[in-house]
């Protein structure tokens, strides 16, 4: 029983979802890792020893410095070593995570907005609108999403004039990943909408003649957000990996603004020549981020599922 005297914080802390979080060691560790990485990424400009995007801070002579060892020429030492251009690996990871997270979050947000909107309309309207949207979704699902993203990315680059390609690359990437991922959201939201639509509180709103848009946004949307948050979290992990994959393939963000995927692409060229750290540390960062987000998603799914409680 909650009372009005309890603070908002106390009520949230005491809610079922927080209770479930406090009693799940995996969720706590994953949440901690995600929070740590997110904070590090947000505050990268203050935390990073150098700014890898600033050519004036770079010294090519520093290239290929091993971790914790002084450079043979300059004597500089870096915790995680440097890459081929002499960029501090720790700093590139911090800045790279920033880009990976930004692209991942934006792409999921884009997919979410698109998927929720189409899912709500398909589920509420039914009939041919539903049929059409779901067939499009089926067709899209029969291709690997990375292929869809590559296709959209290719078409977009063809349409954008070369002068803007550098600056637009990141936005194209977001749209490409988002468009390849909306189907998950649309399907879940459509199913949940069909369930909610038949409930009596929606009928009560229809009896007084409430506008369908108002019914969708004010009544149905809040009640379908649970599953959306779950696939949103798991989708975030997927989007981060998709971004890394595209960047690894060389079609993602430009090398001047390296994301984790770009760093891994650069690193894998030097793995067999002995400079393992250029590949290893960005890979660990990507793995930790994607895995933790995924574990959080799994926990959220279980916590929101009343049957497993």
């Amino acid at each position: 029983m909650t009372t009005d005297t309890q603070s908002r914080f106390a009520r949230i802390w005491d809610s079922d979802i927080m209770w479930s979080f406090r009693h799940s060691p995996v969720a706590i560790v994953a949440g901690f890792v995600v929070a740590l990485i997110a904070l590090a990424a947000v505050f990268a400009p203050w935390l990073a020893p150098t700014n890898p995007y600033d050519p004036s801070q770079l010294n090519l002579m520093d290239g290929f410095t091993a971790p914790m060892e002084p450079n043979a020429f300059t004597g500089n030492s870096y915790i995680l070593g440097t890459d081929n251009q002499g960029r501090d690996v720790l700093s590139t990871i911090l800045y790279g995570t920033r880009i990976s997270l930004f692209v991942g979050l934006s792409a999921v947000l884009f997919a979410m907005v698109l998927g929720i909107t189409l899912g709500l309309i398909a589920g509420y309207r039914g009939g041919w609108v539903d049929g059409l949207l779901m067939r499009i979704a089926d067709v899209q699902l029969s291709f690997p999403s990375i292929l869809i993203a590559l296709l959209i990315f290719g078409v977009a680059r063809g349409l954008i004039p070369p002068a803007y390609r550098e600056t637009m690359a990141i936005w194209v990437l977001i749209v490409a990943i988002g468009l390849s991922d909306w189907v998950q959201f649309a399907r879940v939201v459509r199913g949940a909408t069909m369930v909610e639509k038949s409930k009596e509180y929606v009928q009560a709103a229809r009896v007084v003649g409430a506008h369908p848009a108002k019914i969708l946004i004010r009544h149905i949307l809040p009640n379908v957000m649970g599953p959306v948050l779950v696939i949103g979290t798991i989708g975030l992990a997927l989007a981060i990996i998709a971004e890394a994959t595209l960047s690894f393939l060389g079609v993602g963000v430009p090398p001047t603004q390296p994301s984790l995927g770009t760093l891994i692409r650069i690193g894998q060229q030097y793995l067999f020549s002995g400079e393992w750290w250029i590949l290893l540390f960005p890979s660990i960062a990507l793995l930790a981020l994607a895995l933790s987000v995924n574990l959080l998603g799994d926990w959220l799914r279980d916590a929101l599922n009343p049957r497993l409680r």
């Binding site: 409930k199 009596e200 509180y201 009928q203 009560a204 009544h219 809040p222 009640n223």
Partner: peptide, 10 residues
């Protein structure tokens, strides 16, 4: 409506 658990938006 019949079901007071479904007729009020939770």
């Amino acid at each position: 409506f019949q079901d007071p658990f479904a007729s009020l938006n939770p």
